[in-house]
Simulated assay, not measured.
Amino acid sequence: MALSHSDRSALVQRLRAAGCVYAEDEADLLIAAADSAAALTELIDRRVAGRPLEHLLGWAEFCGLRVAVDPGVFVPRGRTALLVAAAAAVAGPAPAVLDLCCGSGAAALVLHGRLAPRWLAAADLDPAAVACARRNLTPLGVPVYQGDLFVPVPGEWRGRLDLVVANAPYVPSEAVALLPAEARLHEAPLALDGGVDGLAVLRRVAAGAAEWLAPGGHLAVEVSAGQAAALCAVLAEAGLVPTVVHDDDLDATAVTARRPGRTLPR
């Protein structure tokens, strides 16, 4: 719908007063999403009240793609572009790929286009995330399993995966309360809380990856810069060989870890 210059300016000012850093961009997106003045008013009221913009729009931009995001589902962060890039860099040709803790399925969606994998699947414990990921991935023929980490994955892929990507929760439990309200109040706690030191889920991912990766295969995960050394020790203890990647512009840290051994013929 169209707004007058003065009405748009007032909308921008209201968003800015509510703490929206990119108020002008958000105003344009919300105006485009509304099909009536009443609908726009409702969207603005909910945004000012703290609802994530992506939940209001029903999508998030990630690595140049529009990813469907349902209310309550973890919103893909821009910094996770580093995780996807790091994963793609170590994947090899036509890999078998598993996206764990997939949330909306954003990482799998991007990797589907970048890697042309011979097999690609995603999994998450949260039923809402699984439903959302299926909206994004089922049209591509990518299965999404519901369950705890590797548990729901078909056993035939044990020891045969070339790449496991996991944007697992890594926020220490006591720090969850310090997260922005948009995340803390409107995203599933299990997508945020990584336990006492933030590495509880990643320890289990590392242990599972050592079993599910093929020789020469890689695990790729996201973590904070301050946790990278501790995570590398966890990965090494699991028998994997870690490498840390950092991007100052994204303020992002990813770790890839290789299972030793020669890549098996397919």
Rank of each mutant, 00 (worst) to 15 (best):
A2W: 11
H5K: 13
R14S: 04
D28H: 08
L29Q: 03
A49P: 10
R51F: 10
E54V: 09
E61H: 15
L65T: 07
A68V: 15
V69E: 11
P76M: 07
R77V: 14
G78W: 11
L83I: 02
V84I: 08
A85D: 06
A85M: 01
A87W: 01
A88H: 07
A88R: 00
V90A: 02
A91K: 02
P95K: 03
G103A: 03
G113Q: 09
G113E: 05
R114T: 03
P117S: 03
A129E: 01
R134W: 10
P143D: 14
V144E: 03
Q146G: 11
L149R: 00
F150D: 01
V153G: 02
P154K: 05
L163R: 04
L163C: 11
A168N: 15
V171S: 01
P172T: 06
A175M: 04
A177I: 03
L178Y: 06
L179K: 00
P180L: 00
A188M: 09
A191Q: 07
G195I: 02
A200V: 06
A206R: 06
A209E: 11
E211C: 13
W212R: 11
A214Y: 08
P215Y: 12
G217F: 09
V223M: 11
V223D: 08
S224A: 15
S224G: 13
A230G: 13
L231Y: 13
V234L: 12
E237I: 11
G239V: 14
T243E: 14
V245A: 14
D248M: 08
A254T: 00
A257D: 01
T263D: 10
L264Y: 05
R266I: 09
